[in-house]
Simulated scan of single mutants.
Amino acid sequence: MSDELVFYTHPMSRGRIVRWMLEEVGAPYRTELLTYGAGMKESAFRAVNPLGKVPALRHGGVAVTETAAICAYLADAFPEAGLAPAPGDPQRGAYYRWLFFAAGPVEAAVTDRALGVVVPEERRRMVGYGSMAEVLDALEAAVSAGEYLAGGRFSAADLYLGSHLMWGMQFGGIERRPAYETYVARLAGRPAAVRAREIDDRLIADRPQP
């Protein structure tokens, strides 16, 4: 079975997070660019992701969807890249905690805010994030505790949560706080992050985007 990495994406999507992760991993990969609409709904791609959404990854015979899951998968599939605490390392808990905090409460709270959804105070127990204020305070405490989220070393959790902070602050979904800006500045200058941005920005410039 081939162990080829195939990355399905659009340069104006959450695929930018996975591109950064792939550049951190350093393994060769092939990019399949899909267009919004018909391109993502074709049967060939739906065999990879039935929802017809990017990003998605195929690694040999394994298909992985959902951005956080792809990041976690790549960290474990390529342990030599050092993007996750090893199994048994006590920092593995913090790694999982913040990776999936970003995938759950952060994304849900930011999406609700963008859609104008206001959760009544008496119903906050029904939503996983409670309130936007609580999410933002938890994030601030996490990124202020040290340089990185899990044991003082950069990991996929930093890449994923940091990406949400970068996008959120850029587009107004997350308020700017000094602790956030210090944290994301530390991440954005990583060589893999720079390469990934350059690749996707060039793709946006070079082709029409439906």
Rank of each mutant, 00 (worst) to 15 (best):
182 T>Q: 08
109 A>F: 05
202 R>C: 10
102 A>C: 05
57 L>I: 07
84 A>K: 09
127 V>L: 03
123 R>A: 12
190 R>V: 14
89 D>S: 13
57 L>Q: 02
27 A>N: 01
32 E>A: 06
131 S>M: 10
44 A>R: 15
192 A>N: 03
193 A>M: 13
97 R>V: 14
207 R>E: 12
61 G>N: 10
67 T>P: 00
161 L>S: 13
117 V>M: 06
75 A>M: 14
152 G>E: 15
199 I>E: 08
44 A>C: 05
151 G>A: 09
47 A>T: 05
128 G>T: 01
145 A>F: 06
22 L>Q: 04
51 L>Y: 07
4 E>I: 10
22 L>P: 04
18 V>H: 12
54 V>L: 15
7 F>Y: 14
176 R>F: 10
77 A>G: 03
90 P>E: 11
64 V>S: 12
126 M>I: 09
22 L>I: 08
159 L>D: 06
19 R>D: 11
101 F>L: 05
99 L>E: 04
153 R>Q: 13
145 A>L: 03
200 D>L: 06
92 R>T: 14
4 E>W: 01
22 L>K: 07
196 A>G: 08
189 G>N: 09
89 D>G: 11
172 G>A: 00
162 G>M: 01
40 M>R: 15
151 G>S: 11
86 A>D: 04
170 Q>R: 15
49 N>H: 15
153 R>N: 12
190 R>Y: 15
50 P>R: 01
134 E>I: 00
152 G>Y: 12
130 G>E: 07
30 R>H: 03
139 L>S: 00
186 R>F: 03
2 S>G: 09
78 F>A: 01
117 V>G: 03
95 Y>K: 06
201 D>E: 11
85 P>V: 07
183 Y>V: 02
157 A>R: 05
2 S>F: 09
206 D>E: 15
97 R>Y: 11
77 A>Q: 02
70 I>M: 12
